[in-house]
Simulated assay, not measured.
Amino acid sequence: MSSIYVVAATKNPKIIFDENMFTICIKSLDKTRWRCTAYFKSKCRATLLTYGKYVNVKYKHNHPPTVQDPDIIENAMHQKVFILRSD
C-alpha cells in the first residue's frame, strides 16, 4: 500500500502523488483519469487512473516535482491506496 493526498477545491479536487500534482481529466461512473498539472506547460504525459482503492500510474514525468511546498501536503487529506504501475 502507498499514499496519495487529495487537495480539496471548490471546482475540481487535485491529487498529489510522488510530489507531483494531478487534476481531473475525464470522469466516469466508476473511474477517474487524472492528468499532470504540467501537461500544457511541459507536455508531461503522466496520468493516473483511479477506481476504488486502486491507482494505475501511467507514464513518467518529464519535469522536476511540481509540489515544493510541504504545507500543501500537510493540509491535504491522506488516503492509503494500492499502486499499479504501467510505464
Rank of each mutant, 00 (worst) to 15 (best):
M1W: 00
S3R: 15
S3L: 12
I4K: 01
A9F: 03
A9R: 15
T10R: 15
T10S: 14
N12R: 11
P13C: 12
D18F: 03
D18N: 15
D18R: 15
D18M: 10
E19G: 04
E19Y: 03
E19I: 02
N20I: 01
N20A: 04
N20W: 02
F22M: 03
F22Q: 01
T23Y: 00
T23C: 07
I26E: 13
K27A: 12
K27R: 15
K27H: 14
D30V: 07
D30T: 12
K31E: 04
T32V: 11
R33K: 14
R35G: 02
T37N: 07
T37V: 13
T37G: 05
T37M: 03
Y39K: 05
F40S: 12
F40I: 09
R45A: 10
R45H: 14
A46N: 02
T47V: 09
T47R: 14
L49P: 01
T50K: 03
T50C: 09
T50N: 05
Y51D: 04
Y51P: 02
Y51N: 14
K53N: 13
Y54M: 05
Y54W: 06
V55N: 00
V55G: 01
N56E: 08
V57Q: 06
V57S: 00
K58E: 11
Y59R: 07
Y59C: 01
H61L: 04
H61W: 02
N62W: 05
P64D: 14
P64C: 09
P64Q: 11
P65R: 13
P65M: 07
P65G: 08
T66F: 01
T66K: 03
V67H: 04
D69G: 11
P70Y: 06
P70R: 09
I73M: 09
I73R: 13
E74D: 14
N75W: 01
A76I: 01
M77H: 15
M77R: 15
M77F: 10
M77V: 15
H78T: 14
K80A: 05
V81K: 04
V81L: 06
V81P: 06
F82E: 08
I83A: 02
I83G: 02
L84K: 12
S86M: 00
S86N: 13
S86R: 10
S86K: 11
D87M: 08
D87W: 02
